[in-house]
Design a protein around this nucleic acid. Structure first.
Ligand SMILES: NC(=O)c1ccc[n+]([C@@H]2O[C@H](COP(=O)([O-])OP(=O)(O)OC[C@H]3O[C@@H](n4cnc5c(N)ncnc54)[C@H](O)[C@@H]3O)[C@@H](O)[C@H]2O)c1
Ligand SMILES: NC(=O)c1ccc[n+]([C@@H]2O[C@H](COP(=O)([O-])OP(=O)(O)OC[C@H]3O[C@@H](n4cnc5c(N)ncnc54)[C@H](O)[C@@H]3O)[C@@H](O)[C@H]2O)c1
Lengths: 221, 221
DNA sequence: ACGACTTTGTGAAGGCAGGCACAAAGTCGC
DNA sequence: GCGACTTTGTGCCTGCCTTCACAAAGTCGT
């Protein structure tokens, strides 16, 4: 019933989607030894306007100093806290095909506080294989994994046909956040959050813009 | 100066981003032998509301029949045409690491009219290697490739440090559409379209929602 | 041939997000 | 210690996107 402005923690989705970008820029600055940034500098590093940045940050609280800017370390820590990154998030990857293996080998996970605790596949020929120094486990291990690690995020890297089944198993085991790489619309109850990453969709959107660019140039004059 | 509604081809960005989802659902229906769909059915298959679907389609023209619905084949073809998928789009993938190899092996490209014409890397140890039945080529091949194939879309799968350099080379060769998997903000001139796919960002957004879900439940009652 | 029924296409309204511009606030130099 | 300067935080406004609701349109059964 309350608006975003009323509740201190009511951050609009559009803002949330930009916070990781700010955090990344801040982390880079921190490693460069930069201690303080203005909204102008940070905005340009994150590729947004300074007004937008300030508005986004204002949803989190007042962590800037007028006339000076933001303390890099402090702001990074506040954003991380707002995103819920103060604890490690256990992640399981389902589907050890081409994409699943690339994801398993990706070290960007750990760098941002996501701990891959399991690689899963339903195919007996793949189960037991070693991927990125870890043994692939059968789907039946899911329940135990959730119990042991409090598994929170499931990544689906199966073909489209298997994605709903994989999702159902994740949900049954208690997972409530899913990152889906398969090109299907997953049916989930409302309390579950699904984010879709679809390469084909992205390419098609690019095709549209490339296409339109040509058309616009041909029509405008 | 004209609004989206004035120009027949003025499709809002938000709509464009959903068209690929409609197209995918239609393709699946077509393969099932379904000849006709209502906006209600198609909307549910694509995971949007029927009002939204109808409005999106109305930007493309009037291809439905009142009282009946849409002809699956016809609508698919109209959407494909609006997206600019009537021709093949040549794609080059830059950066043959874990991710680049997975992308190279992905057959979803060809299925949707995107033809991978080259795999590129700047590392001499990787150049010449065979990936997905294709030899990896050096960055210096870019210009010739663009000339020969009219290369239109570049995919960047290099580490963040190399992404801007890779992007610059693509643009210099004439590419105007870029799909970027590296977690950096690429600097490009306004006529170039860049879309970013960042796994870490997605996970952090999921973390926020998982986190918030807990908080909301704890605070609400 | 006609009427009832279904489903589209779209005007109108509401809500949300982005951008502008400025007052408030705090710093730094002198 | 004080004033000038810098930069934040935010109220307001504009435009876009989404949802609602219904008249128009065309079909199918009789
Ligand atoms: N490869 C890519 O670069 C790429 C890019 C974008 C999107 N995708 C999408 O990612 C998904 C995976 O692609 P891929 O190329 O890795 O496929 P793949 O066929 O190489 O691998 C799929 C793996 O998932 C496993 N699997 C299938 N059904 C399962 C189930 N129900 N439960 C558990 N495991 C199951 C299979 O055993 C197999 O090991 C696809 O949906 C694809 O569209 C892939
Ligand atoms: N591996 C994953 O699953 C994954 C997931 C999400 C995002 N990413 C991102 O994708 C990118 C690639 O990841 P990866 O794991 O494949 O990295 P990687 O280190 O395995 O491979 C990078 C490849 O790019 C090449 N390269 C580097 N600089 C280049 C340049 N300027 N021009 C041409 N080629 C260049 C290198 O020679 C190497 O072969 C990274 O930015 C990473 O953050 C990877």
């Amino acid at each position: 019933m309350s608006t975003a402005a009323t509740t201190p923690r009511g951050v609009p989705d559009a803002s949330v989607a930009r916070l990781p970008g700010y955090l990344r820029a801040l982390t880079a600055m921190s490693q460069d030894g930069t201690a303080s940034v203005s909204s102008e500098e940070l905005a340009s590093a994150a590729g947004v306007s300074s007004a937008m940045l300030r508005k986004d940050l204002s949803y989190l609280g007042s962590y800037g100093v007028r006339g000076v800017g933001y303390d890099v370390g402090r702001l990074a820590s506040e954003i991380a806290s707002a995103l819920g990154l103060t604890k490690d998030w256990p992640v399981a990857i389902v589907g050890m095909g081409n994409l699943g293996r690339a994801l398993a080998a990706y070290r960007g996970f750990a760098e941002r506080g996501f701990r891959v605790i399991a690689l899963l596949d339903h195919d007996d020929r793949v189960v037991g294989e070693e991927v990125a120094g870890r043994a692939v486990r059968p789907m039946t291990d899911l329940e135990v994994l959730v119990e042991d690690h409090g598994l929170a995020i499931g990544v689906i890297a199966t073909p489209p046909e298997g994605a709903q089944a994989a999702c159902d198993r994740l949900l049954a085991a208690g997972v409530r956040s899913v990152l889906n790489f398969a090109a299907v619309v997953l049916a989930v109850p409302p309390e579950v959050t699904v984010r879709n990453v679809d390469l084909s969709t992205e390419l098609q959107i690019l095709a549209f813009h490339g296409h339109r660019g040509d058309v616009a140039e041909a029509v405008a004059p």
